[in-house]
Design a protein around this nucleic acid. Structure first.
Lengths: 227, 227, 227, 227
DNA sequence: TATGAATGAGGATTCATTCAT
DNA sequence: TATGAATGAATCCTCATTCAT
């Protein structure tokens, strides 16, 4: 998987002779391993995943794993650490760069989250982290600080913008943030848990749209009749 | 451990049911076992839970577990099966008996869910089921059919009531149902995953109140400005 | 092995019904396991010994070992700890009780050491400890303090007796002690290392006799020529 | 490590042997490798020593080891084979060349053994061989024949000289030989096992002197009073 | 019904060995 | 000649399950 696509980027292929096959391989390995591990951890949980399976899904032998990660736990930590943080860094730049209505910003944020995380296999990480929180308190704390908290802060900035500009009513920001995130987060979790049972599956786009519409409508300040 | 004292309380039950002196005990055991198993499964996951620990938490020996459940998997299934179904039966009777506004019904349903499930240790079951869905497809299907689907239907009836009565706008019911459930469900999952990291914890009551307020406000039909 | 002989002690066999078969078994287990472990550790070294082999030599399964010793290292420690210490306690009582010439005491001590340790399979412990000293510093220290040091002190008391009574010349005691112990110790080590190569094996009794004769003769005070 | 300096000394050897520029190096490698291997084998035992560590201590990569020794076992054999044999050849020439009293010869032999073996890191070989005798019977036999037996024969010649010349009593030679060797041998073994625990360490020179004094005194023929 | 000793299959981890470069 | 990435057999250890009492 990763190998094929990587090779496409012919630019680097030009230097193949200089780097040697192994060099290219060695550089690609960690990413391949993490991808395989993520898939299996999400599907079967930490304990239910055999390193043998991770290895063979990544197309290497069991021993090779240990050249890159010194234990199953380290592999798990790497999956969590390397997973979402980069995406959130992107998100922060997005908010920094924004100019326009809070409403637009929120729409964009939630949509971006879905597109970059929820709809990709990174979306399995929240489920994984929920499942294993009890067994890895330190990793959980890392995830909470680096992902959950940052995500909340991101959205909180947008909400505060809206309140300050008068777009939204003045409601407790941290609660609003949770209300905003819950449906998207849960939809991601759902994909990796109950989706296969669900005979009336959701269309993510329209669900997302409805969520934002209803929520923003509920928040809107221009609502004299309802107060 | 708790066994001795429990037996005491069985004195009256013994005469009432006119059964052998072990009957009360026999009935009580599974409940104790299931409670212990639920707690541990939720905390550590299925694979991470040792039957030894379940047994000692329930105050019995490991062998005794096998008198009641023929395998770890059966114990797990029982935890799921006996857990939420009775509560949902209660919920159905609640909707059947309701007369009044859809708004009130929804308020009552969500509050009842929280009080009977979210705030008790039954609230761990959704987390557990999410975590183990990949390893137990059949149990997951059972849970989905008997719990998730029923819950959705329950809420769907209330939403439809509101639409029919003109309280709510005419929006896709199944999506609205999900929007309604997501925050409460996630709050329950949170209690068993990230809560211990969260330095700004939520007050469930005010959060629930806000959720219903904002959501119902967003749904309200009297909203000419938004069309 | 241990089982059969244990059963002989009919006195305890009388209470068999009361104790049950397992009880007797359970009590005997640690000793059986330690005996098997000692033999194999001595023969193959720590790393070269598989717990599987220890178990099957003791007539139990691999898992049973772990009911008594929580790891291979703990088993090793137990082998060392339970091995020689009791014998040395016996030796100390021997010196305490002694009255007579220092020469006799030394003869008795060395002979007793050989009979109780060197000639039994406890004699493998010094070899084992020498071989593994680098890998288990703490155990080595324990062994040194509880066995080596005590043994030296024991013999030192006897030597000092002889010097004080005028039987021996006044020579550095700690060096004399080492000279006294070296041949017996090495003979024990030899049994578990090179003995199988040695086509001219030693008769321990006559060797021991010669050692004591030559050594005591060398120490003797009535040696005008050497002063 | 030592490589650079060693290479320097090879300048003349290169021209003498008229071989490729790597020849000197090629010859040097095994010595470096054997030295590294000896140190680690002695410290940790055969099984406890990783070839990775041997390689890095010798300053080469793991693969390089295999250019010189086809397996770990071959490396071990080489360590034993190349270790003491040359020294014993030297010892034999020493006895051949000797003229003088048996007493002097024995003093010289034991002192030479200590200086060339016991006090150097070759002294670890006896410990190593004791520890691994059970796992390498063939190597043990080699060692026994080429080292132990030769050493005994060497000393036996000296003892017989003394008996024939009337210096010593007529006692069983093979046992006397063992008595002679035991303290020095054990002192060497000690350095690599319990020395680090020993708070009252031995001065090898005075110990050796005392040993020879007491032993030879014990052997002396002019002892009418003691018979 | 209750116990807990015993079992052994399963999986994480290590490390000697190979081999493409 | 030298490297070090890759391999997989070997072994420790865990824990669900059994069964004699």
């Amino acid at each position: 998987m990763g190998t094929g696509t990587t090779r496409k980027g012919g630019a680097s292929a030009r230097t193949v002779r200089a780097e040697g096959r192994w060099t290219r391989r060695k550089d690609a390995r960690p990413a391949e391993l993490l991808a395989a591990a993520l898939d299996l951890f999400v599907e079967r949980g930490y304990a239910g995943t055999r390193l043998d399976d991770v290895a063979s899904r990544a197309g290497v032998s069991k021993g090779t794993l240990y050249l890159y990660y010194s234990s199953k736990e380290e592999l798990f930590k790497a999956v969590i650490r390397e997973g979402l943080v980069p995406v959130y860094e992107h998100g922060e730049r997005m908010v920094d760069a924004h100019s326009g209505s809070a409403e637009d910003l929120i729409r964009n944020l939630l949509r971006a989250w879905w597109e970059m995380i929820g709809a990709t296999n990174l979306g399995g990480i929240p489920k994984l982290m929920i499942a294993e929180s009890g067994n890895f308190p330190e990793v959980t704390r890392f995830y909470f600080d680096e992902v959950v908290s940052r995500g909340r802060k991101l959205v909180a900035r947008a909400v505060r913008l809206g309140i300050e500009s008068g777009e939204f009513r003045d409601l407790p920001v941290d609660q609003i943030v949770r209300l905003m995130l819950a449906p998207v987060m849960l939809m991601a979790v759902w994909r990796y848990s109950f989706a296969f049972c669900d005979t009336t599956p959701l269309d993510p786009d329209s669900y997302l749209k409805l969520h934002v519409d209803v929520l923003l409508n509920g928040l809107r300040a221009t609502e004299p009749a309802l107060a």
